[in-house]
């Protein structure tokens, strides 16, 4: 479904990704594991079109999307739920969700999607008329995920969904992610909580210094010595 081939990317003259290759099959849950700054976020931002690859190819459903601007990428069914929520703080939760369905494709079915999404997030339904900026961190993360679903994505990318949240909220976030996975959406997830993520992932990639150094099934990586030492602190 999604293929990255020899992708190089960075900011200005600083190269972060040095030729990485990743594939995500339809219906799969794939995770990228790596230290802070290894290039995980940059990978997702490059797929989303926010960072332009300097070399390499990104294809989605057979089409080259490596040079598309972000709004074109979204229109093709790839949605990124960004690190740090990035809600529109002075808009109501309802308007935030409406913005999630901005693409023409999603806009047509917005009312139905909204109902489906709110069924998944009963707590969000209670807060619809509040300003997003007034919510707690955990609530904001839920709204961010709900907003991402509003676009009816084929591929949903999570960037650090549990970042900066209290442990108890982290558990709720993971429960939601698992429920979304269960609906059959294809998921690419980057997350500092390596143990939990590898447990739900079909496959994982280990990213170090902008290069993929290892890839295997989630379960195998969990047992791998290098992964355990470097990312689980064992």
């Amino acid at each position: 479904m999604l293929t990255l081939h020899e992708v190089h990317a960075g900011y200005g003259r600083t190269t972060i990704l040095h030729g990485i290759g990743i594939t995500v099959g339809a219906g799969e849950v794939v995770t990228i594991v790596g230290a802070n700054g290894a290039g995980k976020t940059t990978t997702l931002r490059t797929i989303a079109g926010l960072v332009r690859p300097t070399a390499g190819r990104i294809t989605f459903e057979g089409e080259d999307i490596g040079r598309l601007p972000p709004h074109e990428v979204v229109a093709r069914g790839i949605t990124l739920i960004p690190e740090g929520r990035q809600l529109f703080p002075f808009m109501t939760v309802r308007d935030n969700l409406r913005m999630g369905a901005y693409t023409p494709h999603a806009r047509d079915r917005m009312a139905r999607t909204m109902d489906e999404v709110l069924d998944l997030f009963p707590r969000v339904r209670e807060k619809l008329e509040q300003h997003a900026g007034s919510l707690s961190g955990g609530e904001q993360q839920m709204v961010a995920i709900a907003r991402g679903l509003m676009s009816r994505p084929k591929l949903l990318m999570f960037d650090e969904p549990s970042l900066g949240l209290a442990p108890i909220i982290v558990k709720q976030v993971f429960d939601v992610v698992e429920r979304i996975v269960a609906t059959g959406v294809t998921v690419l997830i980057v997350e500092q909580n390596v143990f939990r993520t590898l447990s739900i992932a079909d496959r994982g990639y280990v990213l170090e210094n902008g290069e993929i150094v290892m890839t295997d099934t989630g379960a195998t990586l969990l047992r791998d010595d290098h992964v355990r030492r470097a990312y689980l602190g064992i």
Partner: peptide
């Protein structure tokens, strides 16, 4: 309004 409040997030919603 969304663009004013968070440019990058607006792009992620599909806003040009």
């Amino acid at each position: 309004r969304a663009t004013a409040q968070h440019r990058a997030a607006a792009q992620l919603m599909g806003v040009d």
